[in-house]
């Protein structure tokens, strides 16, 4: 399996895992308010609401790889991205970065490892401090972490801005003086300024116009080869993911339902959810045609259906799907899918 994946990536990969997630879960609990606690004590049938945003996910990202993480709203893809980036602690599970446990907070190694993972956010309007000049947004972190010095500061900031396609002449400006695409470039320059080798992009191009989106995607592709970067690319847009990723992971309601090399996912999807997702995507190649319809809606993550989460919408659901949770199983080289149909065959 690893050999098959290694061939997907560009030359720089040596197949060794860069990030390993083992049994990661994240729950969000809504605590009962005062009235709720009293009512419960008096015997009312209420309990704390728990959302399983991420449910027992294993994921390995190899050095030099671009992994696309796809899913619809509420599937837990952003939560997983934040956990990988070390912004959000998981409720359960371990994260290994080059073999070192990231959750061990006392270790100096873990801090350094966290610095080497950076995140780029969807909304370039909300993720930049409006009161800071671009030079400070980009240069503050490297200065604090001793990557650059006071003396070399200006030259260092210029270099970072130029690399992200920004004119260093604008470094005394504030974020509101830039367009959406340029702001996203500032976010990229800031992330790269601390010399990371792993970038988590959370819907990094979703808010941009098509022509600007293409420019930013091209920048990601260029930076990847220039700096030997590894990406976790989170997006709801299958076209974008297909274009940039070596491997694709598809999530549904907190669980990974399928994982495979890009070509395989788009040519030969296994999981019924992946199939219906692909059928729903409008394609520019298609001409006036009937849109494929997946029945039903995404269930609330507060109260997910038992067994396979997809069974109420699945055209092939059987009795077993309603009770038993399917495990991820290898169905083809490099391709894993969580569906009971694979056992029946």
């Amino acid at each position: 399996m690893s050999a098959a994946m290694a061939t997907q990536t560009h030359g720089i990969d040596d197949g060794s895992p860069m990030v390993e997630l083992r049994g990661i879960s994240r729950r969000f609990e809504k605590k009962l308010d005062f009235a709720g606690r009293i009512a419960k004590r008096l015997g009312a049938n209420i309990r704390e609401e728990v959302v399983h945003a991420v449910d027992n996910v294993d994921l390995t990202i190899r050095k030099g790889e671009v992994v696309g993480l796809v899913g619809e709203s509420g599937c837990g893809k952003s939560t997983l991205g934040r956990i990988v980036a070390g912004i959000l602690p998981p409720s359960e599970g371990r994260i290994l970065r080059d073999g070192i446990d990231l959750l061990n907070r006392n270790s100096a190694d873990s801090r350094e490892m966290k610095l080497r993972t950076q995140m780029i956010f969807q909304d370039p309007y909300a993720s930049l401090n409006p009161r800071m000049k671009v030079a400070d947004i980009v240069g503050e972190a490297p200065l604090v972490h001793g990557i650059t010095t006071r003396g070399g500061y200006d030259a260092y900031v210029d270099e970072q801005m130029r690399r992200a396609g920004l004119d260093p002449a604008f470094k005394r400006r504030y974020p509101h003086q830039f367009s959406g695409g340029q702001r996203q470039r500032i976010g990229i320059a800031r992330a790269l300024a601390v010399k990371p080798d792993f970038i988590v992009c959370d819907e990094a191009v979703a808010a941009l116009d098509v022509s600007i989106q293409a420019q930013i995607l091209n920048l990601f592709i260029r930076l990847r080869s220039e700096l030997d970067l590894t990406y976790l690319f989170i997006s709801h847009d299958l076209g974008v993911v297909e274009h940039i990723s070596d491997r694709v992971v598809i999530m549904y309601l907190g669980r990974v339902v399928e994982e495979a090399p890009s070509e395989t996912v788009f040519a030969n999807p296994n999981h019924p959810y992946t199939k219906s997702l692909l059928a729903s995507v409008p394609r520019i190649e298609s001409r006036k045609r009937a849109f494929a319809v997946v029945k039903g809606e995404i269930p609330s993550p507060l109260n997910p259906p038992p067994g396979c989460h997809f069974h109420p919408r699945c055209p092939h659901a059987m009795e077993r799907c309603r009770v038993e949770k399917p495990e991820l199983k290898v169905v083809a080289p490099g391709q894993r899918s969580a569906c009971h149909l694979n056992d029946a065959a």
Binding site: N218, G239, E242, H243, I244, S262, E263, E285
Partner: peptide, 12 residues
């Protein structure tokens, strides 16, 4: 500029 139309991994 639409990604799906282009070849994977190549610049748009």
């Amino acid at each position: 500029s639409v990604p799906s139309r282009n070849k994977r991994g190549e610049p748009l």
